[in-house]
Nucleic acid binder design. Structure first.
Length: 413
DNA sequence: AATCCACAGGAAGCCCGGGAAC
DNA sequence: GTTCCCGGGCTTCCTGTGGATT
């Protein structure tokens, strides 16, 4: 056993007490600086415990502002209280970034209501949507009680698939005989209701709650609270929490980012055998988090999108900033020829560029050059510490070979 | 004030693959 | 095996747009 590579480190006392506490998936028992929001939601959702229908709600706020955490916390408390007083309350969470069509949301809801002995899942495609809808109603009624449907990142769903689903879901109570239902939408976009039909707007937005971003002081409180449980006493050097909170506050007050930063900084200190986390570890962690976020995104892009991104990066490599869509398209065509790939239309490239913008890999700002037309100014957002070419080389479906310092495409064998 | 550029982006429709129902 | 349904990728066609130029 002495030869095992883990033998000498398995018993080493690390800087963590419980690393899980510092992950955003951890569900804390207290949510600092969210008392007001909890109070409003609690007041509304208590109706479910009385067997009435709570108002539908929309929660707004930037990512990492605690919307999902607060909702999960309240729903678990609600469910627990329901069990105590023998009222069935059933919260169902759906992330609309992963499940982003009307059909899939309905199928997911329906499948979450299966009894243990049942095995008849609604298939992921094949049924007419109205059949899935009536099956959902049947299953909800069979279970009875109050169903709380939480649609996280609802803005993404609406922008992609329209508001048909919300129209149907907010009208569910008219169809249900025994059960009741309430919808909670969680959105990063304050203006997403502009995309909704006015009827859906008024039905869904019965109660709007805005989650303001955390400021640096509030983030410090959150980090202190979590680090008490998660990190050994005395392991955090002076100013570390303040730095993590400050960096995250600059990025729209994202608590998730702050927790990540603190966790990774501590990991870095541990890895280098230090007994204390210092500011240097935070800076290293910041760099790594940036890399970790972007690398898998680039790697998983479809090959056509990689070619578009390549065209942008190729221009920047030559010192060209603020490239117009047309220029990107020209370079993209060249890349396609070199790679032997088919060339898509410029309309399609416009959409692919918008998607890259949404993914945060580029910024595309619409500008007007007067008589010389209207276009988008495109710049990459990939930090200098990352070599995107390296990542693309590892891609499964294509590779870029380096030839005398120049990049050229070739099929991967 | 009218014109014009270089797109942006919406709408409609085609094609394909996957799965269920008949 | 055929038909129906859904979703995704894509094209074609089209209208809209902001501001420099005429």
């Amino acid at each position: 056993m002495k030869d095992n590579i883990f033998a000498d480190i398995i018993d080493t006392k690390g800087l963590f007490i419980d690393k899980e506490v510092l992950r955003h998936t951890y569900k804390p028992s207290k949510l600092p600086h969210r008392d007001e929001e909890v109070k409003i939601m609690r007041y509304n959702l208590v109706e479910a415990l009385k067997g009435h229908i709570p108002s539908n709600m929309i929660l707004y706020g930037v990512s990492g502002a605690g919307k999902t955490a607060v909702t999960q916390f309240i729903c678990s408390q609600l469910e627990e209280m329901g069990q105590n007083i023998d009222r069935f309350v059933n919260p169902v969470f759906i992330n609309c970034r992963k499940i982003d069509t009307q059909y899939r949301v309905l199928a997911h809801l329906g499948n979450s209501l299966l009894e243990d002995y049942e095995n008849d899942d609604i298939p992921f495609t094949g049924w007419p949507t109205d059949k899935v809808f009536s099956e959902l109603i049947r299953r909800m009624d069979r279970l009875g009680g109050v169903h709380i449907i939480v649609l996280d990142e609802i803005d993404h769903l609406v922008k992609k698939s329209g508001d048909d689903l919300l129209y149907n879901l907010t009208n569910l109570n008219a169809e249900l005989k025994k059960a009741r239902c309430s919808v909670i939408g969680i959105s990063n976009d304050l203006k997403f209701t502009e995309y909704l039909d006015s009827r859906v707007q008024s039905r869904l937005g019965q109660e709007d709650i805005i989650f303001n971003p955390y400021n640096a002081a509030q983030l410090q409180d959150i980090l202190r609270m979590r680090s008490k449980k998660g990190i050994s006493k005395g392991a955090l050097g002076k100013g570390v929490i303040e730095l993590c909170a400050g960096m995250a506050a600059q990025e729209h007050g994202d608590a998730r980012r702050a927790l990540n930063l603190l966790r990774v900084s501590t990991e870095k200190a541990e890895q280098s055998g230090d007994t204390e986390v210092i500011e240097r570890h935070v800076r290293i962690a910041q760099n790594q988090i940036e890399c970790d976020q972007i690398t898998p995104v680039i790697r998983s892009l479809p090959s056509q999108q990689k070619l578009v991104l390549f065209a942008v990066l190729r221009n920047e490599k030559h010192g060209l900033k603020n490239i117009a869509t047309g220029e990107v398209f020209e370079l993209y065509k060249q890349a396609c020829k070199n790679f032997g790939s088919n060339i898509l239309t410029s309309r399609r490239i416009t959409t692919l560029l918008s998607e890259l913008d949404t993914l945060g890999l580029i910024t595309a700002k619409t500008v007007s050059n007067g008589r010389y037309g209207r276009t988008k100014m495109i710049n990459s957002c990939i930090p200098n510490s990352i070599d995107p070419m390296e990542i693309m080389i590892e891609a499964e479906d294509m590779m870029i070979a380096v030839d005398n310092g120049k990049y050229r495409f070739q099929a991967k064998i």
